[in-house]
């Protein structure tokens, strides 16, 4: 099972809000994945198949190896659905 890590600055606010939306969308799409949330600093030492969050935050994680999913609007479920579909189709 793939692991998706939702990342925000402090790991307390937006990452949790997004985690909930990720879970509900994955359910709709019938995709199974492990979803967790954390802060930017912790995320750097955590292994995940996908790192998802607002562009400003997760671009700090881009190192050419990590799969980073950047979101423009964290509250936009349509943007999130499109991003998840594009990355996790077939899982």
């Amino acid at each position: 099972m793939k692991k998706i890590l939702v990342v925000c600055g402090n790991g307390l606010g937006s990452s949790f809000m997004v985690e909930m939306n990720v879970k509900s969308i994955l359910k709709e799409l019938n995709i199974e994945a492990e979803v967790d949330h954390t802060d930017l600093t912790t995320s750097k030492s955590e292994n995940a198949d996908y790192y998802l969050g607002s562009t400003e935050i997760v671009e700090n994680l881009e190192d050419g190896k990590r799969n980073v999913i950047k979101l423009n609007n964290l509250m936009d479920k349509n943007e999130l659905r499109t991003a998840l579909e594009a990355n996790l189709k077939g899982e």
């Binding site: 600055g9 606010g13 937006s14 400003e56 935050i57 609007n73 964290l74 936009d76």
Partner: peptide, 8 residues
């Protein structure tokens, strides 16, 4: 960290 608190 920049304006990341702007969630939408």
């Amino acid at each position: 960290l920049g304006p990341y608190v702007v969630i939408a």
